[in-house]
Amino acid sequence: MAEDKVHNRIAVLRADRKVSRRELAEVLGVHYQTIGYLERGEYAPSLALALRIAAFFEVPVEKLFSLEEFPPLI
């Protein structure tokens, strides 16, 4: 069975909060390139990392990550 791609809204929330990849990575304790990999869907986060990212943005994890593409915000 093929691995499911994990879609996310990290870039959208990051831009909304004016947080750089480096700043987010520092808060989360990961390398800044990890944030780029996550945003591009090249890397699926662990459950712990997904929960830490959701907590940082103060949103439920299911509002940030999905196995299905998110509809456009506009």
Results as ranks from 00 to 15, higher is better:
10 I>P: 00
28 L>H: 10
47 L>N: 11
61 V>D: 01
34 T>A: 15
3 E>P: 01
56 F>Y: 12
26 E>I: 03
16 D>Q: 14
16 D>T: 08
46 S>G: 14
21 R>E: 12
29 G>K: 02
32 Y>K: 15
46 S>H: 09
27 V>L: 08
18 K>F: 04
56 F>G: 01
44 A>H: 02
29 G>L: 04
64 L>T: 04
58 E>A: 08
34 T>S: 15
29 G>V: 02
25 A>H: 09
52 R>L: 13
1 M>G: 15
19 V>D: 03
32 Y>S: 15
39 E>C: 05
1 M>S: 14
51 L>I: 03
69 E>I: 07
68 E>N: 12
43 Y>C: 05
11 A>G: 04
2 A>F: 00
71 P>I: 13
8 N>Y: 09
3 E>D: 08
10 I>Q: 03
67 L>T: 15
18 K>W: 02
25 A>F: 09
43 Y>L: 14
68 E>G: 05
44 A>I: 00
42 E>W: 09
36 G>V: 06
25 A>T: 08
4 D>P: 09
16 D>P: 01
29 G>Q: 02
15 A>E: 13
38 L>M: 05
43 Y>W: 07
6 V>Q: 05
27 V>Y: 14
11 A>D: 08
74 I>F: 07
73 L>D: 12
15 A>S: 10
50 A>C: 06
31 H>K: 11
63 K>P: 00
37 Y>C: 05
66 S>I: 02
22 R>M: 07
30 V>N: 09
47 L>R: 12
74 I>R: 13
5 K>R: 13
54 A>I: 04
63 K>V: 04
4 D>M: 09
25 A>N: 08
13 L>W: 08
49 L>W: 05
15 A>Q: 11
30 V>C: 11
4 D>A: 13
55 A>M: 06
16 D>G: 10
10 I>D: 00
15 A>R: 10
69 E>M: 10
50 A>Q: 04
27 V>F: 14
65 F>Y: 14
31 H>C: 06
36 G>L: 06
38 L>E: 00
51 L>C: 04
74 I>G: 12
36 G>T: 11
15 A>Y: 08
71 P>K: 15
2 A>D: 03
25 A>R: 09
50 A>F: 00
50 A>I: 02
43 Y>I: 02
18 K>N: 11
12 V>F: 07
23 E>W: 02
59 V>P: 06
68 E>K: 15
23 E>P: 00
36 G>Y: 08
58 E>D: 14
5 K>E: 02
27 V>N: 09
11 A>V: 07
48 A>G: 06
36 G>D: 07
27 V>Q: 13
22 R>P: 00
46 S>M: 07
38 L>H: 03
44 A>V: 01
28 L>E: 08
42 E>C: 06
57 F>I: 11
40 R>C: 08
44 A>T: 06
29 G>T: 02
72 P>S: 14
61 V>Q: 03
42 E>R: 13
58 E>P: 00
18 K>Y: 03
62 E>T: 13
28 L>C: 10
30 V>I: 15
15 A>D: 10
15 A>N: 10
19 V>A: 05
72 P>Y: 12
69 E>F: 08
35 I>K: 07
25 A>M: 10
60 P>F: 01
72 P>H: 14
28 L>I: 10
50 A>P: 05
67 L>N: 11
43 Y>E: 03
22 R>C: 02
63 K>Y: 02
43 Y>P: 01
46 S>T: 15
10 I>L: 03
13 L>A: 00
64 L>V: 04
73 L>S: 14
53 I>L: 05
70 F>K: 10
